[in-house]
Each structure stands twice: as structure tokens, then as C-alpha cells.
């Protein structure tokens, strides 16, 4: 299915409105900087803008997606579109020099030319400086698109020569929707989007075996805490301690546990739609019956306390032990 401006506008309404108006009124700026986190649609927007810029069978502002121009932009074979990517860890001066040389020529097919610089924050200062004059006074019908995740690292003099479009992080619903479209199961999509709001990271996590195991280990542990608290400590040492064996991994465990108690809380206040662990509805309902909303709130603050300890270099295992024992105690009370 061909992408349309309205598809993109669902994710980035503000930024896309500016581009759509630019095309509609034929008043595109000569240089844009797309700034925003990973996976928020910067690159899609850039290639869609490229298609709209070149497409000769454009329907209003919408490129056709089927003509040779559109197709070749997709396959990277369009002779008048140049994409610059970092060569190793930076974008070096020779790359920009060759870009400028290529653009001192007239277009191959039409007078239109377009270049995209990806990860523009990686421009070396020499490269950025040689680009300055070129962005400032492009010759002919040239459009520049710079893409970056770190707009604060872009040279101020370049920034001032571009129209900056901010791409916002995706909302939770959109992220879930996005993941579902990419073939991620509903259960996993919900979990992942509760952990991160970064689309790219979310996609990686949802395919990560370690993360899938983490999820089931944590859920197993929580159910043990609920149904057989005495056994939970054994589960903790046998499974959790081995699986979450360093500080970063432990952080993930605490996040996953937090979600559990948030779900319990959601059930208490009747927001069943907000439950993340939808596949464990039965256990969650049981937990909600056993513990009051106040108790769940206590558990949440306990976990946040544990996160702070971990942050200030607490030993991961002892943080886990602390949390587990406290929760087990609590479980005893609930019973």
C-alpha cells in the first residue's frame, strides 16, 4: 500500500501540515531539518517529500507512487536524488565536497535536484562549514533535507539556514498500532509500548528473545508471589537472579514489575482497557481482589524506591532481594 500524506500526518500532524501546505502552495523552503527521536517517521517523511517533489503524475499534493520517478526514489536509483550517510562514525568533508560538485551540475532529468543528509549531527565541523554556503545559496531548483536525532548537536549556523521541523515521539496507541502492523502480537506490542515510546527500540525489543523471556519470567515470579509466596524466593534465585544479571537488565525487571502493579491499580479503578498484561487477566483480577488499591500503591512506591537504589549503584541482586522480601511480606499480609 502506498504511503500518503495523511498516513504520515497521523503520526506527525504538525510537521506534516507544514510540508503539505508547502507543496500545496508551491512554497517549499529550500532546506529542512527533520529533528526527532528514532522511528518517529523522519525518513519516511523525507522520502515522501522527495516523491512529491519529483513525481510528474502528482495528484494534488499526493505523489502517485507508481511512476518511474516515485519508484526510483524508493529503490535509491533516482539520478537527481543524493543521499549522504555517515562514512564510519562521521560525515566527512570529501563527502560534502562530492555532493557540492554533483550539485554544481544541472539535474540529470529535470532541473530539480534533492539531497538528503542522514544523521546530520555527525557532520564534522569542516564538512558542516563547507555545506554552509551551499545551503545558503543553492543554485537552481534544489531541495535539501537534513535528518537528525540530536538537533542540539547541529551547528547553529546550519540550523539558522534550515526550516526546523520537530517530529514528536509517537503516542502509546500509535506505537501499539505501528507494532501490530509490523506483525508483532498484541500482547507483546502492549508490553513493549509500556516500556518505551521509541518506535525503533520498540520494534527491536519486540523481536528480542531475551525480552520475551524476561516478560514470562517476571510474570511467573509475580504469580508465584501471589499464589505461593514461600516458593517465590526460590523462583527469584533460580530464575530472576540468573536472567537479570546486571544493573541494566535489573532495571528492565523492575520496569516490568511496575507494569504488573499498575495493571492491578487499573483494575481497581475500573480502567480495564489500560491493562498491559492482557494475557494474565485472571491472575491480575485475583491480585486485585487480594490487595487493596493502597497496597498496590505501596508496592509501586517500593519499586520506584528500588529503581532509585539501582540508579545510585546499588548491587542489583541485593536490590532484587530487598524488593522480593518486602513484597513477600506484603503478600503474607494480603493472604
Amino acid at each position: 500500500m502506498a504511503m500518503t500524506w495523511s498516513d504520515l500526518a497521523k503520526k506527525q500532524p504538525a510537521a506534516m501540515r507544514i510540508l503539505m501546505n508547502g507543496i500545496r502552495n508551491n512554497r517549499l523552503a529550500h532546506a529542512y531539518l527533520f529533528s526527532g527521536g528514532r522511528g518517529v517517521g523522519k525518513r519516511e517523511a523525507a522520502s515522501h517529500l522527495a516523491r512529491a517533489f519529483f513525481c510528474r503524475a502528482r495528484d494534488g499534493i499526493e505523489p502517485c507512487g507508481a511512476c518511474p520517478d516515485c519508484k526510483r526514489i524508493d529503490s535509491g536509483n533516482h539520478p537527481d536524488v543524493v543521499v549522504i550517510q555517515p562514512d564510519g562514525r562521521s560525515i566527512k568533508k570529501p563527502q560534502i565536497a562530492s555532493l557540492i560538485k554533483a550539485f554544481s551540475y544541472k539535474g540529470v532529468e529535470t532541473s530539480k535536484k534533492l539531497f538528503i543528509i542522514e544523521q546530520a549531527d555527525l557532520l564534522t565541523s569542516q564538512a558542516a562549514n563547507s555545506l554552509l554556503k551551499f545551503i545558503e545559496e543553492p543554485q537552481g531548483n534544489t531541495l535539501c533535507i537534513l535528518i537528525t536525532e540530536h538537533s542540539q548537536k547541529i551547528l547553529a549556523t546550519i540550523l539558522s539556514r534550515c526550516q526546523v521541523l520537530h517530529f514528536k515521539p509517537l503516542s502509546k496507541e500509535l506505537l501499539v498500532h505501528h507494532l501490530l502492523e509490523n506483525g508483532v502480537s498484541r500482547v507483546m506490542a502492549k508490553t513493549v509500548s509500556a516500556v518505551t515510546s521509541d518506535a525503533e527500540e520498540a520494534t527491536t525489543l519486540s523481536k528480542d528473545e531475551w525480552f520475551a523471556n524476561s516478560r514470562s519470567i517476571v510474570l511467573h515470579f509475580m504469580e508465584d508471589l501471589l499464589t505461593r509466596p514461600n516458593h517465590a524466593i526460590i523462583t527469584m534465585y533460580e530464575k530472576c537472579a540468573l536472567h537479570f544479571n546486571d544493573s541494566d537488565k535489573m532495571k528492565m525487571m523492575l520496569r516490568l514489575m511496575l507494569i504488573w502493579f499498575r495493571d492491578v491499580m487499573a483494575l481497581h479503578i475500573g480502567q480495564n482497557d489500560n491493562v498491559v498484561y492482557v494475557d494474565r487477566m485472571e491472575s491480575l483480577t485475583e491480585a486485585a481482589e487480594k490487595m487493596t488499591a493502597e497496597q498496590a500503591a505501596c508496592a509501586l512506591s517500593l519499586l520506584m524506591e528500588a529503581q532509585r537504589r539501582l540508579q545510585s549503584n546499588g548491587n542489583p541482586l541485593s536490590v532484587l532481594e530487598y524488593v522480593s522480601l518486602k513484597l513477600q511480606e506484603g503478600a503474607g499480609v494480603y493472604a
Binding site: 550539485f103 554544481s104 551540475y105 544541472k106 539535474g107 540529470v108 532529468e109 529535470t110 532541473s111 543554485q139 537552481g140
Partner: peptide
Amino acid sequence: TDNQVLFKTDHIQFYSRLLEG
């Protein structure tokens, strides 16, 4: 043309892009 110039012999057609400006 606006963007290119062609030199043509019997067997060969030689196109070059033009410089901008």
C-alpha cells in the same frame, strides 16, 4: 536541452550534463 547537451555521430550519442549557474 535545458539540462544536457548531446553530441551525435553515426554510431555514438554523447550526452553531458551542463553546469548550473
